[in-house]
Design a binder for these strands. Structure first.
Lengths: 205, 205
DNA sequence: ATTTACATACATTCATGTATGTTTGTATTA
DNA sequence: TAATACAAACATACATGAATGTATGTAAAT
């Protein structure tokens, strides 16, 4: 009803994003309606439509707030990787640990890895997500090219294939971790072991 | 309008499933409505509701028709694996190839790997899919226990962890293959190479 | 005074589920 | 074997609810 101060408005915006993140995680993205989000944030859809154009905009804003910085950091780190095997392994494991412990980031990841189908949609969100995926894939490619040049990975294997392989492995692990199906996969507990299975078999120190 | 013979009814049932599979693949499961399915099958929702209780029932019927047999075959084969490394690798690669070339099965897989979010839903479909996942995971566990007992995998690593690792890898590869994001991952072309990266690094002949 | 930051109200569309109607295949009976 | 009853295999119609988007109202900050 009453107009809020600019700080208050920013606060409700964050409350909307918090509500969205929580709902996306607990009931899924597709099952979450704008009314759910607004209600849980203690406002009406009017407020939501003031801050966001639609649901896709909420999703992208969530990414910007919670995942953009960590994502950029990881990409940058990977791109700066020298061909040091031990360092790379350490880096991956610490980054995974940090990711798993960042609740907001994990919610964003869950959203991306599990929550978005949208094939033909050709929406802005679609290309938005595609570009983030591409950034990660590319940074892994350059990292593995470095390792390849330094002779830390089997030289008879295409470094791009290795990058694809590891990227698939990472996504698969996160998938298992996030899926409700199997409760026995817990990366917080077994992440290092599982990563080592791939890393130590492929990359030398 | 008119009543059909029993064979005709079975035909429309299959047409409904075909339509559902096509739509699930091209527009996604969540975006596909019962009306879409019925229209594409050349009938009305009345026919669909005659054959299926709801959308979940359609999904499960699709699995039964297209994926149940291959799935059971793979599970059985894995469970019967002796600790022969070379044989296991060959088996995996041939099974993946057969899977990729089975269009109907791939549609079902896409549905399962990409198309179903449904977390809290606690539906029959949810537990249905969970049980198939469990069957696959379990069969990989027994296979890797055999390989472990035969000394074909690093004996200092828990065979269950190896099974989880490979299962994650497989799911990740299929994910990359199916996702619209990256067109450059094609398992039909690179599947053997990518599988070998993991298999040859972990399993000895 | 004007614009911000919402709440409220409205219009519309769409998806689901169910109820009912209709035709014809099929079994039953005489 | 022909008439009849029943049920299968749908189509049609309806009732309902939910979600979206937009338009409008409004109180306070600036």
């Amino acid at each position: 009803m009453a107009r809020k101060t600019k700080a208050d408005a920013q606060k409700t915006l964050n409350q909307l994003l918090d509500a969205a993140a929580w709902l996306f995680q607990t009931q899924g993205v597709n099952e979450t309606t704008l009314n759910h989000i607004a209600s849980r944030a203690g406002v009406t859809r009017g407020a939501l439509y003031w801050h966001f154009a639609n649901k896709d905009a909420v999703i992208m804003a969530l990414w910007q707030r919670d995942a953009a910085a960590p994502h950029a950091s990881i990409v940058k780190t990977l791109n700066n990787t020298r061909g040091n095997g031990r360092e790379f392994k350490q880096l991956i494991k610490s980054q995974l640990g940090a990711t798993l412990n960042d609740a907001a980031l994990m919610q964003a990841l869950r959203m991306i890895l599990l929550g978005v189908e949208r094939l033909e949609n050709d929406s802005e969100l679609q290309s938005f997500l595609a570009s983030r995926h591409q950034q990660m894939r590319d940074s892994f490619k350059t990292a593995f090219k470095q390792l390849h040049a330094a002779g830390k990975v089997p030289t008879d294997t295409n470094p791009e294939a290795l990058a694809t392989s590891f990227w698939a492995y990472l996504k698969g692990l996160l998938q298992l971790h996030l899926e409700p199906y199997n409760q026995d996969v817990d990366l917080l507990r077994d992440g290092d072991v599982l990563l080592d299975i791939w890393l130590n078999s492929i990359i030398s120190d």
